[in-house]
Write a protein that binds this DNA or RNA. Structure first.
Lengths: 229, 229
DNA sequence: TCATTTATGTGTATAATTTACACAAAAATA
DNA sequence: TATTTTTGTGTAAATTATACACATAAATGA
């Protein structure tokens, strides 16, 4: 197989986190190269002996120290001049994590790494802004038909967290009663005996997402789907 | 930028066609390599000076002579041993075309090229079966929320063609009256003055999909969505 | 030519789902 | 102890989805 090709393969991750009722993205500041100092998505070149997913997991770990709860391939970017140094195609992924579970540490390959609010993303290297846009689009669409939002929350969470998460990601108000009714009707949330009392207001019951139950129901043809105008 | 990497980048297309009330896929028979004689998806290596989409378009043209009505990136396959000759990652696409518009001709790089019924796909090279499965899954999901099914039909088509298309792809019966009612309610189908009379039975009015109208409505927030249990 | 076959075209009643909407309860705070 | 803050809950109306059957227009065959 004689192929003349001078293309490199990289992976990049759009890592979403959620805290303080805000959607955040994990970025790194590059250490090397002409883009030094510019912020960018965590990612890097795929090694010959690892598949794409392994490559993302490794890069995430090396550059930021996090391990994703949820990881899904997003899109492959392959414009000729997306990286002016060489022809590089980027296989992108979206990842969901709960920021509370990690202290971000800029590791081997990054000068710095931290969470940015979605509306405070700095100028990014390459086409990484475009990748984020695509990732956000996917996230927005997907929380409506797959129960992946829970991956951004604590294992036990008050209903208000879930409401806020959806409202934040979708960028719109959702009726609290209808939302709760709908989610509970799916029978995939488990009420715990614990309550959360922080600050003022009535203490909130804590719920858990029942992964096992969900898988069972999915098997039987159940389809998670919410839609709020 | 010093990167030691020996990975090649290919594109592959799952080309869907629809005729005789059947969903078909366009395959080529390889001319070269160890997989000679095996059927495979049309596709090939990306050139240094073309982006991914251009590469698919070119390969489709070279190998089968078709030009897709609709082309969308599907998924990138990157397992280490998906091609035993070398490390190759495949950026896959789905394409929709109307088979009536082309006579398939095995061209430069293929020994043969032809349409296969979906239930008569032979053993395929590499992980191409997996790619088809993924493509089919995408198609099944997507015809429910984007009006892409029309790309598989003639410009002017009787309603029964559309019904059959959906029933075939989704693999289930759909109530004719409810289906028609729903589609017409969107106001994106244009009734022509022509009728189609072939064989016995009452002649059918011919409809056109109004791309322009759809784009307008989409702009205003309209969302194509059908769902039949 | 007329009875039969084949495919298209159409409406309505019922069930299910979605939407809109407001006040009581439990705690913290002033 | 009155006020503020947040959680928790039900119902009526509107919309949407579902189930279902017969008339019409042509071709076909007796």
């Amino acid at each position: 197989m004689k192929v003349i090709q001078n293309i490199k393969v990289a992976v990049d991750a759009v890592v979403f986190g959620y805290s303080d009722n805000k959607l955040k993205i994990l970025l790194i500041q590059q250490k090397f190269g002409t883009k030094s100092n510019k912020w960018a998505l965590p990612g890097g070149f795929v090694k010959d002996n690892e598949n794409l997913e392994k490559a993302v997991v490794r890069e995430l770990s090396e550059e930021t120290g996090v391990k994703a709860n949820y990881l899904e391939q997003l899109y492959t970017f392959g414009e000729i001049n997306r990286d002016e140094r060489a022809r590089v195609i980027a296989v992108s992924y979206i990842a969901l994590i709960n920021p509370k579970n990690y202290t971000i540490k800029a590791d081997t390959d990054a000068k710095d790494a931290k969470w940015f609010n979605l509306n405070e993303i700095p100028n990014l290297a390459f086409d990484h802004k475009e990748i984020i846009d695509k990732g956000l689009e996917r996230l927005k669409a997907k929380i409506n038909y797959k129960p992946i939002g829970f991956e951004l929350l604590n294992t036990k969470f008050p209903f208000s967290d879930l409401e806020n998460l959806y409202q934040t990601i979708l960028g719109k108000k959702i009726d609290r009663r209808n939302f709760r009714k709908k989610l509970l009707s799916f029978d995939i949330l488990q009420e715990t005996k614990e309550v959360q009392k922080i600050g003022s207001g009535r203490p909130a019951k804590l719920f858990k997402f029942n992964h096992k139950k969900y898988k069972e129901l999915e098997q039987k043809g159940f389809h998670f789907e919410i839609k709020f105008v």
